[in-house]
Design a protein around this nucleic acid. Structure first.
Lengths: 206, 206
DNA sequence: GTCTATAAGCCGATAGAC
DNA sequence: GTCTATCGGCTTATAGAC
């Protein structure tokens, strides 16, 4: 931990501060202080504040969509024609939720950042979603449609859209309030994965 | 329009600016300029910035939950025992979406504000939801459970939670990007109401 | 109620020493 | 690569005239 470079410390600290306080609650002054460095170091490594935020987002988003795409590819490999709905939804939802649960990698913190970014509708994230990741999202929509061919294509797209909303909302809820405070964090997480996938399956089945 | 008091102009302007730029994008200087008044007037009428934001939220939230509660009461009046799932969900979802469509009342603008507020997990809104409105939310959860008695209570609560997420996400999407840019705003809205309610019904049925 | 003027402080960015 | 010092600008809040 103590061997992290200044650049890595700045990225991790920024991620944590955005998760805690939101994009509106951060300043590069606070970040530099929390990362035990100084203002100039941040501008030296990242240029300016916006490029720092972009770096925090990009560091993990590519990884998330790579995992989703790979899991989808693995499904399609065995059986080209039919898609099992539950497996497709699992390939989309689980990587996000498991990233939350991977405490060592800081994925939980990032998912809180991502939930906030979705909500703020920032131009940068919106641009990423409609360019770099739009291909993967469309492939998932197609795979879902193939698993429920009796639904028309537009309905599938709407419901996939709503499910992304549920996932986003669920993500932003981790770390905040639990529905039942009697559950441990780990139990709450595992229950969420199951409930969300079953919810999504049910919403798309006939 | 021109007969609005300074206080009303400040509230309307603040609502609009939050919808456009987010809570992080506003300042009482910008608000005072857009409302064609001055800094001191805002502090005179509202005390400080946070109280102004609270006033914007409270002005319409009571109205929204009153309508939801009233629609639910009307349903229960006729038939005390059974609840039709679709009608209960309609009583919860439709008031929010129709408030969006009521252009004269500025409800659409407020729904964008509300979607941002949900996402930011601000303390004030969270406090309101877990105190003033928690009663209505529980009554809806109970009514939903009575309409799908074969599901266990916890599952119902989880899925209701996810549906709120979908609704929030859908709301924040209005005014931003349309799924199909060929649709008019009005068509897009009506389609959203139908699709969201059908989505919710499907997600909760056996 | 409305306004101007001002106080006191945080902001991002950069120049320049080491 | 890391740091201090500093610039110009924007922020909230308030004092006091009208």
């Amino acid at each position: 931990m103590s061997t992290l470079s200044t650049k890595e410390r700045i990225l991790n600290t920024t991620e944590q501060l955005i998760a805690d306080k939101g994009f509106s609650g951060i300043s590069i002054r606070k970040i530099s202080h929390a990362a035990q460095t100084n203002l100039a170091a941040i501008n030296y490594h990242f240029g300016n504040k916006q490029q720092l935020i972009n770096a925090v987002l990009e560091r993990r988003l590519n990884n998330l969509f790579d995992i989703r795409q790979k899991m989808l590819n693995d499904l399609n490999q065995g059986k080209k024609k039919a898609c099992v709905l539950e497996q497709v939804l699992h390939a989309f939802i689980a990587p996000a939720l498991y990233m939350i649960n991977d405490k060592n990698q800081g994925g939980k913190t990032f998912m809180l950042v991502l939930a906030r970014a979705y909500a703020e509708q920032g131009e940068y994230l919106h641009q990423l979603m409609t360019t770099r990741y739009t291909n993967t999202i469309k492939k998932f929509a197609d795979a879902i449609h193939r698993s429920v061919p009796h639904l028309d294509k537009e309905t599938v797209f709407w419901r996939f859209h709503f499910i992304i909303g549920s996932l986003t909302y669920a993500m932003s809820d981790f770390g905040a309030s639990s529905i039942s405070k009697q559950m441990s964090e780990s139990d709450y997480f595992n229950r969420s994965v199951d409930e969300l996938i079953q919810f999504a399956v049910q919403a798309l089945q006939a």
